[in-house]
Nucleic acid binder design. Structure first.
Length: 588
RNA sequence: GCCAGCGUAGCUCAGCGGUAGAGCAGCGGUUUCGUAAACCGCAGGCCGUCGGUUCGAAUCCGACCGCUGGCUCCA
């Protein structure tokens, strides 16, 4: 399973990382100093360094505006110019309580610290409760920028006050800061919501409802290509494909435990002739109903049933985001019904499958997370431990590095989540594999063993892409909208130089079309330059320029979307080039 | 859901108390061109929705809907 192993973060000089953290943490203190000078009555939350920068949370008498950020930055520059040294002091808790008597959040933190003495850091007239470390003086902060203001609950608890958080970033050199800001720009350009609009892939409508996606022909085409590929890979791996309805009587969801454990994510019932029906938030109960239509023999297992199942989940309005967080989405779902002795092999197969799928789409790096028993759970601790161990063994067999996320499993079982890293190094939540010892219990899902007795089946609930919506969103950003030819809605744009070349252009297009190539001819009476520009903006992989020369020699002049101009080639040459590239699913 | 910001033509945006503007796209012409934008003209908006303040509201206030950045929560 080489290649599926997570390479981990770039091996950065540990010292440098530490230095950067000190820089960022110090920048947070300098920012707090600036905020305090602007708002003497400010109450301070926490101000840590993060993976990309730093933030600090404040309780302020009024809401911050973007203009405030500029003022705060100016004040920070003043503090940096003064080059105040940072001093570390150890003080008793009582002394600290006195020192921060006007700072209720700090007092709360002091109470929770385990040791009798705490450390504070001081620079200029500003002092903060802090573990450190910091740079030696404020003048060492060479490159920082404040980025945004956001609300954040104190200690992440929505029952507690909401503070104002200022995000910023800092680096040890101006060049590093610059390249980080460029990366943010690049990410903004690749935003799937922007590209979805400009490439005419999908839309979401106020009048229809938030978090509900409408796929336009081009977006739906990409989705269909992926779904077709997905289906054929499932058939190859011994899966069957099934379909189940979108609503079911409330009783089914009571039996499954969803009503008990998943109620917050489900929509209210629909009354149909006095019976209450619920829209499905998951596909599992439907698959179980099909399983139970027969007595199953141990010889039949494992049964692997896959469904592109559209589910609806109630998500709070504030969390919706483009395609990656929606209220209706299609899971590339499957349930595997197996015997306990088959579980490990099945998990191995699933994780291998997921890694295979990701690699096809150009995701070579991913992080694997094993989530264990949450607070609200169904079943017994013994069964949970058993399932968790099986998942661990499967990952170890695959030589996959993973981290454990304690308490983050679903109510019905532990899970393996894979998050993918895109071309900008950002992570996205993708495939998931969940063991389920619970539903078989609740629905009494059995098979007849070789001893002639009934045995409880084990279920695996899994996706290999995650959901079509989220995966497409991630894919759009990963490729920046420039899809590899096998996925590109239009693979070839034929560009006649003048109207007189239209006949030849049509001939070329027809021939490519007959080979199953997705081709379009730009028939407009416009200049060639404009047609090239438009095809370029639509990120069409191949542009074929045809004019007098090409027509005379029965060739095409090939331009790639990276601006590269391949020399003229015969139509048949070009045809086989495209076919090979599409077949290989490679990018160009 | 919470905090903050934002909703103006199909798209990107300007206007921010005196009655609506640009570029691109669209439509009609002219142009027939060699690797990222030819030219001229026309048309296009209850300024998110509802209510309030005002002689007068895109502009000020409120509610709702939606979007954005976060928090919390997730495929």
């Amino acid at each position: 399973m080489k290649g599926c192993v997570v390479p981990g973060r770039k091996i950065e000089d540990a010292q440098k990382a530490e230095q950067r953290e000190g820089t960022r943490h110090s920048a947070a203190h300098i920012m707090a100093e600036a905020v305090l000078s602007l708002f003497p009555e400010a109450k301070f939350g926490i101000g840590p360094a993060t993976a990309d920068g730093f933030y600090y949370d404040f309780d302020l008498p009024r809401a911050l505006t973007p203009e405030d950020l500029a003022t705060i930055e100016t004040k920070m520059h003043e503090s940096i110019a003064s080059n105040h040294p940072f001093f570390r002091e150890e003080v008793s808790k009582d002394a600290a309580r006195e020192m921060f008597s006007a700072q209720p959040y700090k007092l709360e933190l002091i109470d929770e610290l385990p040791d009798d003495t705490v450390t504070v850091y001081r620079h200029g007239s500003f002092v903060d409760l802090c573990r450190g470390p910091h740079v030696t003086s404020t003048g060492e902060i060479k490159a920082f920028k404040l980025l945004s203001i956001a609300g954040a609950y104190w200690r992440g608890d929505e029952q507690r006050p909401m503070l104002q958080r200022i995000y910023g970033t800092a680096f040890d050199t101006a060049e590093e800061l610059e390249s980080h800001l460029e990366k943010l720009d690049e990410a903004a350009k690749r935003d799937h919501r922007k590209l979805g609009k400009s490439l005419d892939l999908f839309s979401i409508h106020d009048e229809a409802g938030a978090g509900l996606v409408y796929w336009h022909p081009k977006g739906a085409l990409i989705r269909n290509i992926i779904e077709d590929f997905w289906k054929s890979e499932h058939f190859k791996r011994g899966y069957d494909i099934i379909h189940t309805p979108h609503i079911a009587k409330i009783g089914l969801w009571q039996s499954s435990g969803h009503l008990e454990f998943y109620k917050d994510s489900m929509y209210p019932p629909i009354d149909i002739e006095g019976q209450n029906y619920l829209i499905k938030p998951m596909n599992c109960p439907g698959h179980i109903l099909i399983y139970k239509t027969q007595l199953r023999s141990y010889r039949q297992l494992p049964l692997r049933w896959a469904e592109l199942g559209t589910v609806y989940r109630w998500e709070r309005s504030g969390v919706l985001h483009g395609l990656t967080r929606v209220r209706g989405f299609t899971q590339d779902d499957a349930h595997i019904f197996c015997r306990p002795d088959q579980l490990e092999d099945e998990v191995v197969g699933v994780v291998e499958f997921a890694c295979f799928m990701l690699r096809i789409f150009g995701f070579d790096e991913y992080d694997v997370m094993l989530s264990t028993r949450p607070e609200k759970y169904a079943g017994t601790i013994e069964v949970w431990d058993q399932a968790t161990d099986t998942l661990k063994r499967a990952l170890e067999r695959l030589h996959i590095d993973y981290e454990i996320d304690p308490g983050e499993g679903v109510f019905y079982g532990p899970k393996i989540d894979i998050s993918l890293r895109d071309s900008l190094g950002r992570t996205w939540q993708g495939p998931t594999t969940q063991v389920d010892f619970n539903l078989p219990e609740r629905f009494d899902v059995n098979y007849i063993g070789d001893d002639g007795l009934e045995h409880r089946v084990v279920m695996i609930h899994r996706t290999v892409l995650g959901s079509m919506e989220r995966f497409l969103g991630c894919l759009i950003e990963h490729y920046g909208g420039a899809f590899p030819p096998w996925l590109a809605p239009i693979q070839v744009e034929v560009i006649p130089i003048a109207d007189q070349h239209l006949d030849y252009a049509h001939k070329v297009a027809l021939e490519l079309e007959s080979e199953g190539i997705r081709v379009e001819t730009d028939e407009r009476s416009e200049r060639m330059n404009l047609k090239i520009r438009d095809a370029q903006l639509r990120k069409v992989p191949y542009m074929l320029i045809v004019g007098n020369e090409e027509e005379a020699s029965s060739t095409v002049s090939v331009r790639l979307r990276n601006g590269e101009n391949l020399k003229s080639q015969s139509l048949s040459q070009f045809k086989s080039l495209v076919k090979v590239i599409v077949e290989s699913k490679k990018n160009v």
